[in-house]
Amino acid sequence: MKKETEHKPGKKYGMVIDLDKCTGCGSCMAACMAENNVPCKDDESNKLSSITWIRVYRLTNRKPFPETEICYLPRPCMHCGGVGDQGHSPCVSVCPATATDYDHGTGIVSQIYTRCFGCRYCMAACPYHARYFNWWDPVWPGDLKKTLSPNVSPRMRGVVEKCSFCFHRYQLAMEKAYVEGRRDLEEGEYQTACTQACPSGAITFGDLDNPDHAVAKMKEHPNAFRLLERLQTNPKVYYISSREWVRRAGDNYLKNEPTNSKPRAAAHHG
């Protein structure tokens, strides 16, 4: 029997979203829901209880018409690695039942819905509102049940869920690779549903640490930024915007601070 003891350096899957390309169409949200068996309630207009793993926010420069500018910003789970990518993401560390953890092999914040007992502490911890609580049991009336994909298990009420970077697609790609005797994936073999669906091609997905992957180069773009970097959450989702006000809206700054101010070097908790 072959023992799988060899440890290869882990991958770091991440996303680069070009906000200059995003039209705000919402395809990513719909694609995500269809891919991940996210249910629809009769009324989803209360966005505070509406589950959309990736959510498109509408940012404005807060200037009066017609100087107003709008930027649409899709926000999946950031899959925060925490300081030094050690897995100290805001949500993982607080889960009392170890129902969510940081996968050092892929850099993905993974979770067990059936372990979660719904304390919602992780939601309180996540500044991105990326985690959603199932206030209701999911319902697919009539034949809509037929649209359910067997790749993702439907979640019951009372548990928290969030974007998984379509991890089941990684699993399926790996299965294929295993059967073919490989252990590594090509860039195109594992792509998230939102990446695929985006009509603008605004989303790029891949291994941030692999120089052959497009994301590795894109994240070095001078206009690249991440949301709330100053909190040292170390997200794996990068954004690119040519507009300064958008980049500034990505983080909080004191009045006279320049955009891109980093947090002070103080030792961080944990």
Binding site: S27, A31, A34, T147, A197, P199
Partner: peptide, 13 residues
């Protein structure tokens, strides 16, 4: 070219 809109995705429904 591979992209799709939200309505198109909802076709199953």
């Amino acid at each position: 070219q591979g992209g799709i809109c939200a309505l198109g995705i909802s076709g199953t429904q």
